[in-house]
Computed example of a mutant assay.
Amino acid sequence: MKAIIVMYDSLVKNLLQPYGCQWTKTPNFQRLAQRTVKFENCYVGSLPCMPARREMHTGRYNFFTRSWGPLEAYDESMPENLMKNGIHTHLISDHYHYWEEGGANYHTHFGTWEIVRGQEGDKWKAQLKEPKIPEKVIAALLTDGDRIG
């Protein structure tokens, strides 16, 4: 069995081709969706990123019992449970806080990991132009109840 979990902090699925968007070109997401089962629904208990990650690792709601923070020593995590059952786990992240001192130790629960630099205050951040999103696309997204930006 192979499992790939793709998780983004700020991505509207309606802007991806596999979910019906025709004005963006997302060939890698297209190929992935054609070869896998698409995840259609998610009900999040804790937001934003780090609490949601703790929920994904442990399967427990985060904000019912604690505030923002790292995985605790007593937390059993999904990547660890997979490894105990002979399944290789690997994390690729551009969330450089994992690797900072005191950086929430989420990466240490994977068999291997790597970082793609370029987010937030990281000096390697690329300077990209703002995308031109057609007004009709913005209107359609807002009609569906989604918010972008």
Score class of each variant (00 low, 15 high):
residue 54 R to Y: 11
residue 62 N to W: 11
residue 149 G to W: 02
residue 66 R to G: 15
residue 101 E to L: 06
residue 139 A to T: 08
residue 146 D to C: 15
residue 31 R to I: 02
residue 112 T to C: 00
residue 35 R to L: 10
residue 76 E to W: 04
residue 121 G to F: 11
residue 79 P to R: 01
residue 95 H to W: 15
residue 46 S to W: 14
residue 6 V to C: 06
residue 55 E to I: 00
residue 99 W to G: 05
residue 108 T to R: 09
residue 86 G to P: 03
residue 73 A to V: 15
residue 67 S to W: 14
residue 32 L to Y: 00
residue 5 I to L: 06
residue 142 L to P: 04
residue 149 G to D: 06
residue 72 E to I: 12
residue 6 V to G: 02
residue 76 E to M: 05
residue 98 Y to T: 01
residue 106 Y to A: 02
residue 78 M to L: 14
residue 145 G to S: 13
residue 99 W to A: 05
residue 12 V to H: 10
residue 4 I to N: 00
residue 131 P to L: 03
residue 142 L to Q: 10
residue 41 N to G: 05
residue 26 T to I: 08
residue 75 D to I: 01
residue 34 Q to P: 03
residue 110 F to H: 03
residue 139 A to M: 11
residue 38 K to E: 05
residue 115 I to L: 14
residue 9 D to T: 06
residue 132 K to L: 07
residue 31 R to S: 04
residue 6 V to L: 08
residue 134 P to M: 13
residue 11 L to M: 06
residue 40 E to M: 09
residue 6 V to P: 02
residue 114 E to V: 01
residue 57 H to Q: 13
residue 115 I to A: 14
residue 89 T to R: 00
residue 55 E to L: 01
residue 88 H to A: 10
residue 80 E to Q: 09
residue 134 P to G: 10
residue 14 N to K: 12
residue 47 L to V: 08
residue 2 K to G: 07
residue 26 T to R: 07
residue 32 L to H: 01
residue 145 G to N: 15
residue 94 D to T: 15
residue 73 A to W: 14
residue 45 G to D: 13
residue 124 W to S: 11
residue 117 R to N: 08
residue 86 G to V: 06
residue 107 H to N: 04
residue 28 N to K: 06
residue 116 V to I: 14
residue 58 T to Q: 01
residue 75 D to P: 04
residue 9 D to Y: 09
residue 30 Q to R: 13
residue 108 T to I: 07
residue 34 Q to H: 12
residue 79 P to V: 00
residue 21 C to W: 05
